[in-house]
Simulated scan of single mutants.
Amino acid sequence: MVNYCVYQDRCHQEVEQKMRDFLLVPEAKEEILLYLMQENYLSEERFTRSYIRGKFYMKSWGRNKIRNHLKFKGVPEKLINRCFDEIDDDDYHKTITKLYQNYESKITGLQGYQKKSKTIKYLLSKGFEYEEIVEVIKEMKEGESE
């Protein structure tokens, strides 16, 4: 189990699932979990921070999608909210802008409002907040009019 945790940061749920695969007695599972936490092989906060950084900076996921996936892994909401400081607000804004421009430029054969609508749906599916998307669109329009 140490090797499993050393390979990459894991959440408690992943470690417990792996132990279920080994068919261990409950007492042994608790001992192993306790040992992993005491020796700092298993840290829910470290996992959460690493997961947030990876999914945002590597896969360009928004906060909503990251939050939902972490909840699915059994990470407490309070911890998720506390760890979102891993994402720089400027980087978040720049990512939305870049994704919006890239996606919209690939769409052909549609009216302007259809392109905008389709691009917004795409960004929502990536987990970005509607308010943030609208703000980026507004800024881009202001930039065009200057």
Rank of each mutant, 00 (worst) to 15 (best):
K138V: 00
L99S: 00
G143W: 06
M140Y: 02
L34K: 13
R49L: 10
L36E: 08
L36S: 07
K73L: 15
F56A: 02
F56L: 02
R10K: 15
Y35T: 14
R53I: 05
E131C: 06
H12F: 13
T119L: 04
K121T: 12
L42S: 05
F72Q: 12
N3A: 14
G62P: 02
I32G: 04
E39M: 15
S125Y: 01
Q114W: 09
K106L: 05
Y122L: 02
C11E: 09
I32V: 15
V75D: 03
Q114M: 13
T97G: 00
M1W: 11
Y7M: 15
K55L: 11
I107A: 02
Y103A: 02
Q111A: 15
E14T: 12
M58S: 10
K73G: 07
Y41H: 15
K78Q: 06
K78A: 09
C83M: 02
I52G: 04
K126I: 07
D91G: 03
D89A: 04
E45C: 05
G112H: 11
C11Q: 08
C83Y: 03
I96G: 02
R63D: 04
R82F: 05
V25L: 14
K65N: 03
G143M: 08
S43K: 06
I107Y: 01
C11Y: 10
L123H: 03
L23H: 14
F84L: 09
W61H: 08
K121E: 14
K59T: 01
E144I: 13
L42N: 01
D88C: 10
Q111K: 10
N68T: 00
E44I: 09
Y7L: 15
L124C: 01
C5G: 09
Q38F: 10
Y35P: 01
K98E: 08
Y4N: 10
K78P: 00
E31T: 11
Y103I: 04
D9Y: 15
L24N: 05
N81K: 12
Q17G: 09
E14S: 12
T97C: 03
I120Y: 02
E31L: 08
I66L: 01
T108V: 12
R82N: 10
K141A: 06
Y51T: 05
C83K: 02
A28N: 12
C83A: 07
K65G: 00
R20G: 12
N40K: 15
H69D: 04
I32S: 02
I52C: 05
Q17S: 13
R53F: 06
Q8W: 14
Y113Q: 09
K98R: 11
Y4Q: 07
F84I: 07
M1C: 14
V25C: 13
Q17A: 14
Y4S: 08
E142W: 03
E27F: 14
K29A: 01
K121H: 13
Q101S: 10
H12P: 11
K118C: 06
K73S: 05
E144D: 06
K121M: 11
T97M: 02
